[in-house]
Design a protein around this nucleic acid. Structure first.
Lengths: 251, 251
DNA sequence: CGCGATTTTGATCAATGTCAAAGGTGGTGG
DNA sequence: CCACCACCTTTGACATTGATCAAAATCGCG
């Protein structure tokens, strides 16, 4: 098994060939006006697995598009516990927050080697003002991430540990393999450690390990060498306990 | 004690006198162009405590500004457990989501009697297109809510139950009483039941009750009759265990 | 081959949930 | 004005989940 997630990626390329141009803030300008973005961006950058793109509490003079690789956004408490807020995949737009000049409200760490496209932070409001579609796209991106954060919150706050792991893996599969990837019995590469899963779900690595063993013994899935095999999608979805609307019980 | 939160509010009034016009999407148009919003809105509405503004999984043909009262957004799992995602206060803009025509990804329930200002959903993109500042404001609102959701997630995922309750109350005080309300020993009206707190934090009402008793016995705060007294702000903040940035231990 | 990071397992313990029942409290209708 | 009712809070006894601590086993990599 080659560790694909560490392949050294991407000589800087033009926006026209950008693999994620349709996924991020640039989307409204692809085509005719892509050169606007091309002139705006500061350049590309490649960061090794384990490094930070930016850190909680520090200033940051840039904004980032993830071109390739996996990123975790997170916060750390005084008690030392770390919470992973989201897994950012290629196409994610990182670093925008309500006050662009405030210290960052969270950190972003590379899970794999990562390639990013860098925007200058101070000029971004001008770009959005000159191209209102960018603002609209930004609102769209933000609301999409907000919904995912809400679902993550529900997962961590309301599900037991086993369901929580199941749900997390299902959502990740959907994002990586597309919404229909549950038709078959998917095999998916997830460059996560069990510690990442634990940090994302508010569990300990030890307990996550036991839960994965349980899922393996019940022939639902296996997760080894960063590869997830799903043997029994139906059972997995059932364990994951999806949300429903239930009206309060009548009299 | 009068239950202020049930005072019958607000004959519909014009946008010019709107108490929250500076807080929500309308902000860029206050002043000269406020009439744009005035013409756009469908009207006002008053809902009783306990009713839903909209429900998870159902369609919704409107968007809402909270004018007065408290609202909880939430999801419910098949297992019956309910997760409160956020407490929406006056000025909140509810119902916007990435696909405006999709079923709602969460529900919104009135904690108190609530007055809302209603926008037609289908025409909103046009409004944003004609007034790009609206799109920018929307992005700003969304990112602010996103940050709050992230902090909520960290709270639920990474803090022990006592810290979790402490942190939740602190944040709520900041929102209601302003960021400086911890200089003194605040007394704040929170129209929440212990069940609401439990649902927001992924705990049970019984355990929340015990934790509040503990905080009372340690003379940190008391929460009774929907009134929160904070006796010892410093200790409360310490218990709340705020996030920090800590670099990994060096070699 | 050896080292650091990760996974795996066992034994034990603390934090939190569950169940059940008893007090408040305010609102409503007689 | 009283009595009742629904809902909320409070408390106790007990069950369970998931954390903690410690130590092997495994793996990727230099």
């Amino acid at each position: 098994v080659t560790n694909w997630f560490k392949r050294s990626p991407l000589v800087p390329i033009g926006c026209r060939q950008c693999p994620i141009k349709e996924l991020t803030v640039c989307r409204p300008l692809v085509g005719e006006r892509i050169s606007v973005v091309q002139r705006f961006k500061s350049g590309d950058r490649i960061l090794p697995a384990g490094s930070d793109i930016f850190r909680f509490g520090e200033g940051c003079s840039e904004l980032f598009n993830v071109l390739d690789g996996w990123v975790a956004t997170y916060q750390v408490l005084a008690s030392g516990r770390r919470q992973i807020l989201d897994i950012a995949l290629p196409g994610a737009f990182l670093g925008y927050q309500p006050d662009l000049h405030a210290p960052m409200s969270y950190g972003a760490e590379c899970i794999t080697d990562v390639a990013i496209c860098v925007f200058p932070r101070h000029a971004f409001p001008d770009l959005a003002e000159m191209h209102p579609e960018i603002a609209m796209q930004l609102a769209w991106l933000n609301s999409r991430d907000y919904v995912r954060a809400q679902e993550h919150l529900t997962n961590v706050g309301s599900r037991g540990a086993l369901s929580r792991v199941a749900h997390f893996l299902v959502e990740l599969c959907r994002r990586v393999g597309g919404p229909d990837c549950f038709g078959a019995r998917p095999t998916i590469e997830l460059p996560l450690t069990q510690q990442h899963i634990a940090d994302a779900l508010g569990l300990t690595n030890v307990y996550v390990n036991r839960l994965l063993r349980q899922l393996r013994e019940e022939e639902v899935l296996s997760f080894k060498d960063r590869t997830l095999h799903i043997f029994d999608p139906a059972k997995l979805l059932e364990i994951a306990d999806y949300e429903t609307y239930e009206t309060r019980d009548g009299p």
